[in-house]
């Protein structure tokens, strides 16, 4: 029995239906098993060429994708460039055309501009997978967060998940919001008002101003990384204040007197948004997130590879 198509590209979770999201999560299960084998390789994508086009530095996501690609027996090439296309000299359009001329099957792109993945996907016939475009979406992160929650709770529907931190600048937050809402979870956003766009309430998410209330409400917290630049840009007065007012600390969790599952997309700023004893504690699923990341990415690559690139004669 074949599966319904995902289309040519994975740009974001906003554009997927609940069924498509569930399909990816279900497909990730057998891929988890592959990663447990001694020979962590299956020939499913043998002969496919995949380019990891990273315009923003990233170690963990790139490595995760690389493992996913290699475990499917694909041939991979990493292209890492820094900065925007303007400083680089070659425009994104030209990069796209060059890739297509080389008959690349799939492109995994991470780029500092929102919309860059769609820009590329609209212009080349290869499958395009968004590994994070500006502040827009990071769909594979959203998917692995969903998978991790599903593993832990057995379901997503009815779960209460609070996304905590700099939602305004977070593509992880946006992907999570879409994925959780579509699968029937209740979503709350918690953080300094300067970093929570109020309009998102129109999508059906709650806004909880104080972290203690968010902890009391939630089954799980997805703690976002706070970047130093936010302080420099004046969104918050200091990292110290952020930790004291919004940090997820052992004391706060103990005071709430309940078990709350802790997720974090990484890399963590220990002592800022999350304390070490929480990150390394018994309710943290941060490491399972990483394991699930490879499986989810394998599932996405496997499913997308089912659609032949447009330049291939059928």
């Amino acid at each position: 029995m074949t599966t319904p198509s995902l289309g040519k590209d994975l740009i974001g979770l906003e554009g997927l239906s609940a069924d498509q999201i569930r399909l990816i999560l279900d497909t990730a299960e057998p891929f988890k098993e592959v990663s447990e084998r001694a020979i962590k390789k299956v020939p499913a994508l043998r002969g496919k060429t995949i380019v990891n086009l990273f315009f923003e530095p990233s170690t963990r996501t790139r490595i995760s994708f690389e493992f996913a690609e290699k475990r499917l027996s694909a041939d991979t090439v990493n292209v890492a460039t820094s900065g925007s296309s303007v400083s680089k000299g070659e425009t994104l359009v030209d990069t796209a055309r060059n890739l297509e001329a080389m008959r690349i099957d799939m492109v995994v792109i991470r780029h500092p501009s929102s919309g860059a993945a769609q820009f590329l996907g609209d212009r080349i016939g290869s499958n395009v997978i968004n590994a994070g475009d500006g502040k827009h979406e990071h769909p594979t992160q959203g998917l692995l967060d969903l998978l991790t929650l599903r593993d832990r709770f057995g379901r997503i529907e009815g779960l209460k998940v609070a996304i905590c931190g700099d939602v305004l600048h977070s593509r992880v937050a946006r992907s999570n919001i879409w994925g959780l809402l579509k699968l029937g979870a209740e979503v709350a956003l918690c953080g300094p008002a300067t970093l929570i766009p109020r309009e998102l309430a129109e999508l059906g998410v709650q806004i909880i101003p104080r972290i203690d209330d968010a902890i009391a409400w939630a089954d799980a917290l997805n703690v976002l990384r706070l970047q130093l630049e936010r302080m420099q840009a004046g969104f918050i007065p200091s990292l110290r204040e952020y930790n004291r007012v919004f940090g997820v600390t052992r004391e706060r969790l103990d005071r709430a007197g309940k078990d709350v599952v802790i997720l974090h997309p990484g890399p963590m700023n220990r002592g800022v948004e999350i304390d070490s004893d929480v990150a390394d504690g018994p309710h943290s699923v941060i490491l399972p997130q990483v394991t699930n990341g490879v499986a989810v990415r394998m599932a996405v690559l496997y499913l997308l590879a089912g659609g032949a690139p447009e330049w291939q004669a059928s």
């Binding site: 029995m1 074949t2 599966t3 198509s5 279900d26 497909t27 057998p30 590879a305 089912g306 659609g307």
Partner: peptide, 8 residues
């Protein structure tokens, strides 16, 4: 074309 489901 579209991928078959992968079982256990």
């Amino acid at each position: 074309g579209p991928r078959p489901r992968v079982g256990e």
